[in-house]
Design a binder for these strands. Structure first.
Lengths: 224, 224
DNA sequence: GTTCTAAATGAATGTCGTTCATTTACTAGA
DNA sequence: TCTAGTAAATGAACGACATTCATTTAGAAC
């Protein structure tokens, strides 16, 4: 925030290069927050718990962070780093999209509370996220897509991925009709048939849907 | 909700059929909550505000509701009623799916905070939601789909719809690269080309994605 | 009219995120 | 070495919340 052009958010810095007295900084806070989340889920991520895990008082955090939301964004950036977008450099577009989507969804299934946040957050705050988009866009371009069709395709895929990540956190018996059984024969039949396959229905849906949307997008790009 | 066998959650009841003294009941609370939400957004839906809108004290609500979450579920059921699933009785499967998805997404775009809830909530609590699934499943069955492929197809579509509804609430300039411009040529080019079309990118993505996933599903159902 | 009970009350609780006046301790300049 | 200057930590306090609970209120049933 002082003289570097890139760092967008409050990073403590002083004239000399060396770190100063403070125990805290952005990296430490972000890592501690992520650790808390990984170990105990998002409900355990409170400012007090975070402060305690850093052996500091809650108010001390506010010298480095604007709000809890900002910490969530930091976590999001770290998590997003786990998404493999190098596949676009080695695989064909449809294969790359599939591989990318799989890691994307798997990772965010463990971070569902971030999803409503990301979906609405300006990407400008996340350089690393932008790099991912660049690689994905490059993949489309290389495959000969019309420029104006690329963003909608990416957004559509992401919407599907986020929705699927949310869905992946649902209980297995989410569709159990309970006392309403009997009045919904078609649905119950379908449910039973799907159960009989032994596959997890969230996974089956994700893979079937991913195949459909990727194939569908490829077909569309040739048609229009 | 009065004498139907289905009502799963705390509904006040007494030996005789007539309503008793109390000002409150499930329907009233749900409507008042929805009204609050429609007028001021989900952040204005607090137990105190809800109680005040019903001229009652906050604690009075807890004679009829287990928790705020339960109120959210009631709202969800009312909102879900707005989704048009009669189209499956009149249109071909792909047309019906498209029409259904459009109303589904449009409606939930105005109720984004419900989405993380729904995605994870057992449907057994919502008879009317189950009826919707029944109509959708009937549409698939009528079109000759294999039973075990129906649930995954529905779930995949819903995931896309929920993701798209979340996306629809994002700010228009969400992709503005800000200070990171320059290092991401492919993405910026795609962005600019999309912008030049004059279309809202969330809408473009939804419609492109919907076409892709519907077409893709149809193709898959013939292939496998 | 007595009893039973659903329903409303209002005070209180606990958990949050967040603010702020104050203190602490390191650093730079004289 | 002394003297600011300042980033950073402290702890008490605040204001929203959802939720609980002992108590009161007022119909209905017998």
């Amino acid at each position: 925030m002082k003289q570097e052009p890139a760092s967008s958010t409050a990073a403590p810095r002083r004239r000399a290069g060396r770190p100063r007295s403070g125990v805290l900084d952005r990296e430490l806070i972000a890592r501690a927050a992520l650790k808390l989340v990984v170990e105990g889920g998002y409900s355990t991520l409170t400012m007090s718990a975070l402060a305690k895990s850093l052996s500091v008082s809650p108010s001390a955090l506010y010298n480095h962070v604007e709000s809890k939301q900002e910490i969530m964004q930091w976590i999001q950036e770290i998590v997003m780093d786990g998404v493999d977008s190098t596949v676009f450099e080695t695989l064909s577009l449809d294969e790359a999209l599939t591989a990318w989507a799989v890691t994307y969804r798997d990772i965010f299934a463990g971070h569902a509370p971030l999803i409503p946040l990301i979906a609405v957050l300006p990407v400008s705050g996340s350089p690393r996220t932008l790099e991912m988009y660049e690689k994905v866009a490059a993949g489309f371009t290389r495959a000969g897509w019309r420029q104006e069709d690329i963003i909608p395709a990416i957004v559509a895929l992401e919407s599907f991925i986020f929705g699927s990540a949310l869905d992946a956190t649902a209980p297995l018996d989410i569709f159990d009709p309970g006392e309403n059984a009997g009045s919904i024969p078609n649905f119950e039949g379908a449910l039973e048939a799907q159960r009989a396959t032994g596959r997890n229905s969230a996974d089956a849906a994700f893979h079937a849907g991913l195949r459909a949307i990727v194939n569908g997008l490829m077909a569309t790009s040739r048609t229009t």
